[in-house]
Design a protein around this nucleic acid. Structure first.
Lengths: 196, 196
DNA sequence: TTGACACCATACCGGCCAGTCGGTATCTTC
DNA sequence: GAAGATACCGACTGGCCGGTATGGTGTCAA
């Protein structure tokens, strides 16, 4: 589908990704999408609603695919999490946009969570689902003897998600691919330490 | 000292901390500091320079005191890092401002690094100094037999700093003190795994 | 044929913002 | 005590922004 609504959504995602939500301009979005402000306000009742739609329709599906699904489907959680981080780091290190602007969900979280409850709720729901998926996978791994008995799966899941936010956030101002790979490998060593 | 310049700096820190740099208003800052726009532009040649001054004169000294000095002075790095995290988590969990708005340096980093090279440089320098301090301390600990031989001190330092960014960033949109304590404890377990 | 409605275009508005500028008061220096 | 520098003051400006009002056009049901 290449409907007007979709084009606006895509242009808005890029505008906000590059300039932040507050810094992004609806006029620019209309222009870039080839539509007009009339069209924009026809589909989204204000700037915030457009932002919410981006979280739910653009960012969340991509996040699920990149981060959550691979963990949900696995039969070996530690290896799956390691592989997911390694793969996503490898991909993003090659992606100049990602190096410059980091993780779109994290960006919105940092900028808008304290200012707008609608954003906070939606973003928090995304991260919570991710934490749950990791904790569940680790719990299953525990029962299979792939994860140490003493490991607090909820705590570890919280830390792993925090690590992702931190690693991607760091890249945003170091612009240093090497550092990202290093911290990724350190995280993998940590994950190995969870094995029996 | 309670000079006009200091009052402006303090008011600006709070305004930007609460509303972000782009969202913060110079008029509000002038008003809140009891000065005027004339005074503000007398001391800072534009909004960006005011932001830079905040990084260097307000945020960095506090960050050194809270995070870097305790690690530099220690004779047991792993325990010092654990204690620093525990203490800062304990402090910030009780601080409603911190829960709502997270780490001031991280906020500025996420918002401004991709948009303004002056911010990026200054912020990156802060984080780099911190990573160095941790890596040095771990290296010293290694020679004293307090840290495993196989540990990559640079990699671990990068991960630890990323964890701080992630944990404080998470708190900002969960507003959940328990989660912060949990991830902090998971980090402490990880740090213990670095011991021989 | 007509009315209703989704879809979009365009001109426009009030408000806020960063930054300017002419002016004044006080303090330093010679 | 003249002259300059420093420390402010506050009205003002031009520009951009989010949002609106209004009207046009194509489609489809009655």
């Amino acid at each position: 589908m290449d409907s007007t609504r979709d084009r606006i959504l895509q242009a808005a995602f890029e505008e906000f990704y590059r300039n932040g939500f507050q810094g992004g301009s609806l006029s620019h979005i209309a222009e870039k999408s080839g539509a007009t402000k009339g069209a924009l306000f026809h589909y989204f009742k204000n700037k915030a609603e457009l932002g919410y739609a981006i979280v739910e329709e653009v960012i969340q599906p991509s996040g699920n695919e990149r981060w959550i699904d691979p963990v949900k489907k696995t039969s070996d959680p530690v290896e799956a999490i390691k592989a997911t981080f390694r793969r996503n780091i490898r991909e993003d290190v090659k992606n100049i946009e990602m190096i410059e602007h980091g993780c779109p969900l994290n960006n919105l979280a940092q900028e808008m969570s304290p200012l707008d409850e609608g954003f906070r709720m939606r973003i928090e729901r995304s991260y919570e689902r991710w934490r749950e998926a990791i904790a569940d996978a680790l719990e299953r791994g525990k029962q299979r003897g792939q994860v140490k008995k003493g490991v607090g799966t909820k705590e570890v899941a919280a830390l792993i998600v925090a690590c992702q936010m931190g690693i991607w956030g760091t890249m945003r101002n170091t612009k240093d691919a090497e550092l990202m790979i290093q911290s990724g490998e350190a995280l993998c060593s940590y994950l190995d330490s969870l094995k029996p």
